[in-house]
């Protein structure tokens, strides 16, 4: 999580208007999910991955490692879809007999699960494009412009900011505790962890108090209003985002009509 944050701030696409990136991502996710088409999914994976690595300058190794993160969930869920139980061995491609029934893969189940797998991976790569190239602060200012309720945006912003303060505090407490042998045995570990938990609670409370005082000193009146940052923005980005997705939609429609499936 921390390294995603670091890469986002150093991405070459960082100064592009976050709204453009958000719109592009949202459209592509929608098309990818709507199309239910393996080719479209693969195109989306490569397009988004390519944008992230080539335009954003994120190392390919890091992106691949990130793509492995959802893999375990994904494999478990597609496995359950792909595996069927049947009385009839003919329906299954590969089957083992269990208690008078057959358990195995059916052709339809296998097809379904591959489609789901690619669709999910496509959507994930869209989200990675957004989160690896857009720092949280920029994303929040885009949400503010979209008129998402202020309280949500403010809360997210504060949580984001103070997660780092909290992590820093945890780290310091942990070092202080372990240098006094706080984690030398299992029972002392439990005790130290408990003490850290309650200490964090008190610290967080004090910190919020101090923050409120400091905000008041700068004229806080219930809303965290700030100036919007200037981003590189150009209408051509929106046009190309729409064009790319229109192309994907067209491709999907053509392929569907070619295979004789329902159009929409």
């Amino acid at each position: 999580m921390i390294s995603i944050d670091k890469y986002a701030y150093s991405s070459k696409l960082r100064y592009k208007d976050p709204m453009q990136k958000l719109v592009f991502t949202a459209m592509t996710v929608a098309v990818c999910i709507w199309a239910k088409n393996n080719i479209i999914s693969v195109v989306v994976i490569f397009m988004m991955g390519g944008m992230t690595v080539l335009r954003g300058g994120i190392p390919l190794r890091f992106l691949l490692k990130l793509l492995l993160v959802p893999m375990s969930f994904l494999l478990v869920s597609i496995f359950t879809i792909a595996v069927n139980i049947s009385d009839n061995k003919e329906l299954l491609l590969l089957a083992v007999p269990v208690a008078g029934k057959w358990i195995g893969f059916s052709a339809a189940g296998l097809k379904d699960s591959i489609r789901l797998f690619l669709k999910a991976l496509g959507a994930v790569s869209c989200l990675y494009f957004l989160s690896l190239n857009t720092p949280m602060v920029d994303l929040l200012s885009a949400l503010r412009r979209l008129r998402i309720p202020k309280i949500l945006v403010e809360l997210t912003g504060l949580v984001y900011r103070f997660v780092f303060v909290l992590l820093d505090t945890v780290n310091r407490i942990y070092i202080a505790q372990s240098s006094r042998l706080g984690y030398s045995s299992l029972s002392s570990s439990y005790r130290s962890l408990g003490a850290m938990g309650s200490m964090l609670f008190v610290k967080a409370y004090k910190q919020s108090d101090a923050l409120y005082t400091a905000l008041e000193a700068r004229g806080y009146d219930g809303e965290l209003n700030v100036l919007a940052e200037n981003y590189e923005s150009h209408w051509s980005w929106y046009v190309s985002a729409v064009a790319v997705n229109a192309l994907l939609v067209l491709l999907a429609v053509v392929m569907k009509s070619a295979t004789g499936g329902p159009l929409l």
Binding site: V137, G157, R218, V226, L227, E229
Partner: peptide
Amino acid sequence: GMVFQDPDSQLFSASVFQDISFGVVN
């Protein structure tokens, strides 16, 4: 203008620019 001892309890935004603009916007 009041500057507190611990900057972590004064800076509320993860963006330097936005944090500096807070008082002015108010």
